[in-house]
Each structure stands twice: as structure tokens, then as C-alpha cells.
Design a binder for these strands. Structure first.
Lengths: 377, 377
DNA sequence: GCCAATGGTTACAACGATGTAGAGTGAATC
DNA sequence: GATTCACTCTACATCGTTGTAACCATTGGC
């Protein structure tokens, strides 16, 4: 793309520079720089003159030049699959706010569930636009671990990749999923379906939460029935609806559903409703993520709050730590505390009543040395 | 924020520069630059040597340096109120995708409904990080028109500010709201409430859509009843729920609701459900924006699709036009075609059936000269 | 009354790329 | 055989900052 050329000197006077300010104020360029950057040792009189010149000329610091000189941009990247998934939209919202408080600007990359784009986030052109990266991979996995051995500050989110040489913010997936499942069982449900499983996967939210589901069944003394496992690659409303619908249309006997994320729970609710099944009367429903939607759906949907607010905060904090401190403390894995929140879809609250916390799980911080990786806290 | 200093020459070798590549390849820096930038007149042999050196050294072009030199960043800003509002999350998603196709990177600014932050978007430090701005203001209004007289490429979205010296992408607000209201009336509804009005406002989505609502009532021969107008400042699920709830608790007789956006429609649905009112049995409901949510809610919610996909595409295209061409074509106001989409919440489709378009409205393009501003097309 | 420490300021050289102008080639043109 | 032109490449200045080192006052300590 070629931009237009401007030839009117008067109109297109590119920009006021420090040089212009310096001349006007009768000082050196560096003094202007010092004023702009809040260097303390400046005579008040000088400062005033410079400030006046700045205001007069409408001078604005050229960020690009500063970035070049200082080798920093004060920007960080947040790479997520898709903003149209509410969980990631909320995450992005939070990360932007937290980063802002630290004086950082956030650049968002959408990887759209494409492996190539995820690789590009780690290695591509845009990488160097920012000082660091908060990365929530979806396609990359443990097999790509070496890709994560990068030379810039990196914080990994999610459960696709463990033990990368980077800080990691993750969730209590197995335990929380187990708690959610046990909760459904405690309501007397016996045929608990799971939606969003990924056959054959060993890591990743799907695998871990499915594992928690199985543990939950075991704990409740319920048998595991493969017919109750609904596969869904992408975790959208649409796939949740389709998977749920397929299962119901296949005549599978179901009295509860654990959707591995809330978007699918919303889709499943839709599919149940389309088949005139009552929630929670006929089928109890619980999701995962605790996005804002589930507080307003009809009925409201119970969910696992994995500590989303914490995740954003911690991710930024860890990245800032890497940005400011040498990489000397090894790496940490942080797991926020999570909760199972009961709402109408599990009959935990009366219609129209607010939510109720039905289970709580501690979080923790684990120091990762390159060798053994025992869970602490 | 001060970053860590690195003193290990070996490890922290800052970066390979064109100079290093040039030396290795035995050519001048400029030739390396030419190769990198695809300049055609280079001997194949030279190109090969340079490319080899690039690969050998793992050279990466320094974007910041290039930006400084070329005075461009190939980035654009998208400023929206909040990403956690699904409409804006979807908009951001689309804008990012479209921009990408044009080789542009998008920086998202959240203004969070704060006037100061909106002013900052137009004038603040970050402004110059990008080549242009797509701005969806919420607080700034016609009174701030002079703020929009800026010297960078700008595309304005929404209905807060008209006639700014910039391209404008907006919606068929009045006509679409009118159509939505008329549609509710055509279903036999007589007590049609509106949710999300802004008392005293003359421009803005709220005012325009409320105006359309009134016109719709008039067209249907229904009286306007102030008791049926629900105020709601921010258009969130929560405010929609509260406003709807208040109206019902006040005993207002309602048999249909026009929520001025879908988030509030979802909230209203929640409030109706909490009071055991059936949708559409007792109350018909229609929203505005046609976000993905309303296709999966229970029941599915009818809505006005203002041409969201188009909006993103057109906004980017118009900005690119300003980026590449001199500002010589005056300004245009583009209004995508919009539709009223009927779903379960208005009884337009049977339970479980997909959607049905119940009204269509043409869009159009209007050339804005600085003088008169008559609507064309 | 000399020396050190501090305060206030400046000159100069980077940061890593690209635009411009022009120097060499060699082939085509007259 | 001189002139033109297209191709290939280079030298140098420049984009607008900030880091470094050094300079010239003052000030205070002894």
C-alpha cells in the first residue's frame, strides 16, 4: 500500500520536532527531551520556557523515534483465538484495562484457530511491534514446545502447552471439572453428558476438563458411558447446539449436561429448548468460564468461574515482571482460585434468584525449575 | 517503567541489522534494503547472496526504524467503548480480519464510556502510534464537532456525531427502528415498550431509534405512552434487565418490548422470565444489532441487523482510501442495507425453527459537501 | 582559598532503516 | 564512435529521539 504524497509545504508541515521547540525556547534539544521526560534537574525558568514553546508550537513527542532509540515500545501483544468468543472478549477487555494501569498499550492478535497464525504470533513480523506477549494458544501443543523457547518476555495462558520456558497462567481444570460433575451428581442426576470433548487429545482444556468429568463420575459412583461424550472441535455456541442436538436426536438418555465452556452451554440450552426439554426440570446444565452471558440467559446457567479476573491481572503482572526484571527467577505457574457457581440451570437457586457458590477450589503458585515439576500450594 | 539492562554481550546481542547482512553478503546496506523490499532491479546472483546472508544471520527487519523513516506504521486504531459488549467484540473481530487483508494491523482502544478517554483517542499520546482511526464515540457529541477536525485519516462510526469532516459509516437507525416497531404492531401488540432511551438526547443511537419507535407507533396508529419508555444509560445486559424489571414491577402494562440493542434485549428477556412472563406468549421482544447471542438464546430473539458485516468492511475501506488518496473527494456517509430478522421472541418462526427476514431496508451512500447535506440514494 | 560534589546544560553519536542522487556497467541507437 | 538508456549498485543524509560524556557554574566543606 502506498500512501499519498503531500507537496504543500504549508499544509503538510510534517510535524513539530524537539528541534523546533529547542530553537523557540533557546535551549538545546536534549533539554527539551529532559523536560518532556520529567528529568528533575532543570531550572524552573528553563522548564517554563520549554513548556511554553511546547504549548505554543503544539509539539507532540514522536513515539516511533523514541521507540527506536530506547528499543522499547511499551506495548504488549495479547494473542487469542477470536474476539467474538465472549470468553476472549472479556479477557481482552480485562487485559487492556490492567495493562493500561501499568502504562502499557495492548495489541490484540486473533489467531482464529489457525496453527500457522499461532506460529506467526511467536515468530512473525508483528512480534517485534511490542515488548512482550501474552499468548493463549489453541492449536499449538506440547509437541511444539521448542517454539516457545523465545527470546522475548512471554506469558502462556491455557492448557495446551505446559512447561514452556515462560510464566504460565492456567486453571484448575481437572479439579474444577470434577467439582462441576460431582455437583450435578449431587443433584441426583445419573446420566451426565459432557459436551466439547476432543477425542484422542491428551492436553488442552478439553482433555483436562473431560478427565475431571470422568473423575467426578467415579467419585459419584457413576459409570462412564461413551455415548454421553459429545465431541465438538471449536467451542462456539453453534457447535454446542449441534453436539447437544445430535446427542438428543440419537436418543441418548440424558438428565444433565456439563458443557466444557459457556458458549457451548448456551448452544446446548438452545438445542434442549428446541426439543422442548426443560432446564433444569428434564436436564440440568452447567458450563465453564462464567462469562457474563450466563447470568442473563433463560434460565441462568451454572458455571465454573476459573478466576477470569485474576487470570488477566496475573498475566499482565507476570509479563511486566519479565519486562522489568532479568529472567532470573525461573518460571512460575499460577492457578487462580476457582469456584462452581450454581444458578437456575441446576436448580441451585429459585427462579429469578441470584447465584450461589456451591464449591470452591484453591489456586496456587508453582515454581517451575527446569527439572522436576511438583505442584506446590 | 524501566526495563532490565542486559550486560552479557553474547546473549543480549541486540539484533542483527541490515548492516550485518550487508557485510556478510558483501554489498551495501541499501542493496539489502532493496532486496528486503522487493525492489526489482537486482541481479539474481546478488539477491541470492543477500537472501543467504539474511537466512544465515536470522535477520529480521526492524519495524520501528522503518516506521520512523517512512513515517508510516501500517497500523490503524479502532476505538470502541468496550470489548465485553458483544456488538463491539464482533465489530473488532471483523475489523481486524478485514484490515489484515489490506496488510494493516489494528490497535484497539477501549474508551469505556468515558468522555476524557474519547477525547484522548482523538488527541492523546497513542494517536500517533497508528496511521488512522476508526472511531465509534459514545460520549462525544455534535457539540464536540471541532474535535473531529483532525489532520489524520479518520472514519467515524455510529450516530453520535454527524457531519464531521470525515467519512462516516452509520445505520438506518430511524427507519429500522420504525420497521421493528411496526413489525411488533403487525403482530397485534398494542402496548409496545422501548428500552434504552436517553431522555433529552437529540442525536445518538438512543435518540434516533427512539424516534423510529415513535414513528412506528404513529404508523401503526398506536398512541405514545411515556410509561412505556424505559431509560437506560449504558446498554448492557444488566441495564436491560433492570430497566425491564422496573417497568414490570411498576405495573406497566406491556405486551411487546423493543430493546434498543441486543444486550439489553437479553437482559430484558431475563427480567421477563424472572417474573414468569412468557416470550412471545405474554410479551413479544425484539432487539437491535443482531449479534450472535440472539440466535441461541431461549427463545431466540428477533433483531435488527444493521449490516454489521458491511460496516466493518466499509469502515476499513474508507479509511484505506483516506490513507492512500489525498483528501480530495470530500466526505461520504455510508449506510449499509439493514433487515429486521424475525425469530421466536416475536413468534415469527415456530419453536426451533431458524430465522425469517420480515423487513428489508436499503442502504445508501451520500456525498457530503461542506455545505448542504441532503440525503441521497 | 582550594577541592569535591552537585546542578544545569550542551554537543555529539547513536538507534536501524529508506530516499536521493549519482556512479559504473553494458547494450541499443543514431 | 558518441549518445542515450536501462540496469545494478553505492554513498550519504536523514527520520526524531535519547544516552553519554563533558562542560561550566555554584555551593559547601575544610
Amino acid at each position: 500500500m502506498a500512501y499519498a504524497v503531500c507537496d504543500d509545504e504549508e499544509v503538510c508541515r510534517v510535524a513539530v520536532t524537539m528541534h523546533d521547540v529547542a530553537v523557540q525556547a533557546g535551549v538545546s534539544i536534549k533539554t527539551v527531551s529532559n523536560v518532556v521526560n520529567g528529568y528533575p534537574h532543570i531550572r524552573p525558568e528553563t522548564r517554563r520556557r520549554v513548556q511554553e514553546a511546547i504549548d505554543d508550537l503544539g509539539y507532540r513527542l514522536n513515539t516511533t523515534a523514541r521507540n527506536l532509540r530506547t528499543r522499547r515500545t511499551d506495548m504488549i501483544t495479547l494473542a487469542v483465538p477470536e474476539l467474538s468468543l465472549p470468553y476472549f472478549a472479556e479477557l481482552a477487555d480485562r487485559v487492556i484495562r490492567v495493562a493500561e494501569e501499568q502504562g502499557l498499550t495492548v495489541l490484540i492478535e486473533q489467531t482464529g484457530g489457525s496453527r500457522d497464525r499461532e506460529v506467526e504470533v511467536l515468530t512473525g513480523k508483528r512480534r517485534q511491534l511490542t515488548d512482550g506477549l501474552i499468548f493463549s494458544p489453541l492449536e499449538l501443543s506440547q509437541a511444539d514446545l521448542d517454539l516457545f523457547d523465545v527470546d522475548f518476555p512471554l506469558v502462556v495462558l491455557g492448557e495446551r502447552v505446559f512447561d514452556a520456558p515462560a510464566h504460565h497462567v492456567t486453571m484448575n481444570n481437572v479439579a474444577a471439572a470434577r467439582a462441576a460433575t460431582v455437583h450435578l451428581a449431587s443433584l441426583g442426576r445419573r446420566r451426565i453428558a459432557v459436551i466439547g470433548a476432543h477425542e484422542g487429545e491428551e492436553l488442552g482444556s478439553a482433555a483436562l476438563r473431560t478427565e475431571g468429568y470422568k473423575q467426578g463420575l467415579a467419585e459419584a459412583g457413576l459409570p462412564f458411558d461413551p455415548a454421553l461424550v459429545g465431541e465438538a472441535g471449536l467451542w462456539h455456541r453453534s457447535t454446542g447446539s449441534e453436539t447437544m442436538g445430535r446427542m438428543l436426536d440419537d436418543g441418548v438418555d440424558v438428565d444433565a449436561v456439563f458443557a466444557l465452556n459457556d458458549a457451548m452451554a448456551l448452544g446446548a440450552l438452545h438445542a434442549l429448548h428446541a426439543r422442548s426439554l426443560d432446564v433444569p426440570g428434564d436436564v440440568a446444565l452447567i458450563g465453564f468460564d462464567d462469562i457474563d452471558d450466563v447470568r442473563y440467559s433463560v434460565p441462568t446457567i451454572s458455571s465454573v468461574d476459573p478466576g477470569s479476573a485474576q487470570i488477566a491481572k496475573v498475566a499482565v503482572d507476570l509479563l511486566v515482571e519479565r519486562l522489568t526484571a532479568p529472567a532470573d527467577h525461573g518460571y512460575r505457574r499460577v492457578v487462580p482460585a476457582s469456584r462452581v457457581v450454581g444458578r437456575e440451570s441446576t436448580g441451585d437457586v429459585a427462579e429469578g434468584a441470584p447465584e450461589r457458590v456451591v464449591a470452591e477450589l484453591d489456586g496456587g503458585v508453582e515454581q517451575i525449575s527446569s527439572a522436576a515439576l511438583g505442584r506446590t500450594a
